[in-house]
Nucleic acid binder design. Structure first.
Lengths: 215, 215
DNA sequence: ACCGGACCCAAACCAAAGTTTCGATAAACC
DNA sequence: GGTTTATCGAAACTTTGGTTTGGGTCCGGT
């Protein structure tokens, strides 16, 4: 149930290794896509389902560790299972610090790989769930006009309409209108809802959270 | 500034190693307390300031890795820097997965240890800051009466006073009084404040978040 | 028996939030 | 030129939120 329709990408320049990993994971029910290089992998594009990357460290063109860090820099957040035939402790530490789910020295037992991959998939599954929620919220937030966003930032900070009005040099009635639009567009059922949405979106007025009450 | 008054605990059964680590860290400005065994360490008690633990893996009585996991189980959250003379990759993975800040194979360069320790102290410093805030909130929350807590749970969920009243079989005016007490006791300046406090305290009415509107 | 605290409620307010209806200007777009 | 959209505001409400004042019961501790 956890395994069905989950995708595993493999990057290893050893064709034999690719083949055996492919058959192992495929027989377990995963959707497997093997590559011989990081370039091929990047050219392929990622599927929109729970995935993970089984990455060999020693590659011809680019070190697997370097590639892992590059993925992080480029905000490609796929769980990585590292493997290597000639690893040492500093490499392991580096890989784990960079967020690898596991680090398997070759040769490894099949169960070790399956366990690591299962955990990686589970990690990606929950990340996707969380990101999905945030994505909907971001989309709604983007539908707000600049003024509405400004009002939202001040409202979720706890300011009253009149304080927002004073800070933005508006009449209170205008603030109420913007505020109403925010509630409607964000589909918030209550102020408590809106505050929690703002927490997820990391929205807050910087001039207020840093100080107490500047004005 | 980061180093002053930070405490480093060392557990290593090799007296020579303890001595050299002690002098290295002490000369850097840390407050160092060395131990030869995990028992000694546990008997000593932890200081209430930014701290970390430099832990050798190969000990007579108890493995450092086991001890690290025991600390986690017993909820003793101190950042751990692991070191070992005879480490392998599986041990490294296990230590890093258990949350070690770093894993240093002996012999290591002084700068490596200092860098790992500095990062561990910084980790503990921010954890203490976050925990401190949560602690204050928990204390305030405990000062609430059962009814007040109940009202708070429903209010931060987004319910209006009259809805809270209906759900608790109270008059709206009573809800308002409880709600006012909650705001005062929790020292919340606004509803938005209270919602954020509830998020930190992980408070919410279970009968509401699970279903829509049971009644 | 007395006191304090938790709990409950009503009347009478006042302040804040929210809505609708009526405008109005200015910029962007076709 | 006409349309849309964002922006701003007034008047006239209704609904919530919040406080104060003044009651009341019940229970546990002294």
């Amino acid at each position: 149930m956890t395994t069905e329709s989950a995708r595993i990408y493999i990057i290893d320049d050893d064709a034999e290794m690719r083949g055996s990993l492919d058959s192992l994971l495929r027989s377990t029910g995963y959707d497997v896509v093997p590559f011989a290089s990081t370039r091929e992998f990047l050219g392929h594009g990622l599927a929109d389902k729970p995935s993970c990357l089984v990455l060999d460290i020693r590659l011809q063109a680019e070190s697997g560790l370097d590639f892992q860090e590059r993925l992080a820099r480029e905000n490609i957040r796929i769980p990585v299972v590292l493997m290597t035939g000639h690893g040492d402790i500093p490499m392991t530490v580096r890989g784990m610090k960079a967020g690898a789910v596991d680090f398997l020295p070759k040769p490894f037992r099949e169960e070790e790989m399956l366990s690591a991959v299962a955990q990686a998939i589970e990690t990606d599954r929950s990340r996707r769930a969380a990101d999905g929620n945030a994505g909907v919220l971001r989309q709604r937030y983007e539908s707000l006009t600049p003024r509405e966003r400004e009002v939202m930032g001040l409202v979720v900070t706890g300011l009253m309409n009149k304080q927002v009005a004073g800070r933005m040099n508006l009449s209170e009635i205008t603030v109420k209108i913007h505020r109403g639009n925010v509630m409607r567009k964000m589909e918030a059922q209550s102020l408590a809802d809106l505050v929690r949405m703002a927490e997820v979106l990391a929205i807050r007025d910087t001039s207020i959270t840093r100080f107490g009450s500047p004005d």
